[in-house]
Amino acid sequence: MTELFVLAEHRRGELRDVTFEMLTKGRELIARADVDLTAVLLGHNVKELAIRLADQVKKVLVVDDARLKDFNEVAYQKVLTHLISERKPVLILIGHTSFGIDLAPSLATKLNVPLATDCIDINFEEKKPIVVRQVYGGKVNIKASLRTSESYIVTLRPATIEAKEVKPIGGEIIEVASPLKEEPTTKRFIEYFEPPAGEVDITAADVLVSVGRGIKDADSMPIVEKLAEALGGAVACSRPIVDKGWLSADRQVGTSGKTVKPKLYLAVGISGAFQHVSGMKNSELVIAINRDAKAPIFRAADFGVVEDLFKVVPILTDRVLQEKKSSK
């Protein structure tokens, strides 16, 4: 019986959501094949995490080693190369996260196993994986096949598959001796670094006016600030605004920034890359302003305005101010 590996991702003692998303996909895939679902957990003092995983999967392979405490691609790659060579799983699922991006291509190269990254879906057709990926910023998708091989590695985009938990099944926890012989010398984990928090906590705001690349230059920022002020809300943004240094990192909504759930999320000039959408999709009401009718943000919004933001935003700001005045 062959196996499907799901590499559990954890940080600072907690399993990451993507782990359960991958287990959900894995369960779906094995339902149609004679394959065992196995969670693979690398870490140090991770007993609790192993028990939590064993609730959801029949088998958990655990490699406990102090050198695996914090994510280090070199150490992870060595241990996984060993496990994969020994057990020959048909598929290894890894999260397309910061960890997965560092690890999966290095593991695939080492093992000479075909790899497809950042997939939003995967299926088996005639024993070969067929993956679906988004390209060109989510405007089109591709269906792709992988070169025939004994094993395949696929990284799944986080927050794409809805994690479904099963009733605890009390699976087996199998401890595997660590194959690591020495401390990895070419790469060392030093510490976590948390950029200092700013004065505004966007996760606490009821109303967010969020600005993206469409604002074009720093001098135009006041038009969104005025709208936010009129609505009594805070200004948030998508990644390009932080990259350009126009707002501080604590204003960023998305995978690498904050996850927000305001009562109103007004997206101004934001195209809606998945990294951004995954940070705001649970907002109660989303209104998007973008001049590109095909912008992916309109798939995440309740109301859309396909207009030049420089024309709409000032008029909308005036209207809001008028409304507030007349209702006083």
């Binding site: 940080r11 910061s98 948390e194 604590d250 690498s256 920034g257």
Partner: peptide, 13 residues
């Protein structure tokens, strides 16, 4: 860069 605004400091040969 990690998710959620966190960073990981590494030393690479």
């Amino acid at each position: 860069e990690l998710e959620g605004g966190l960073e990981q400091v590494m030393e690479v040969g």
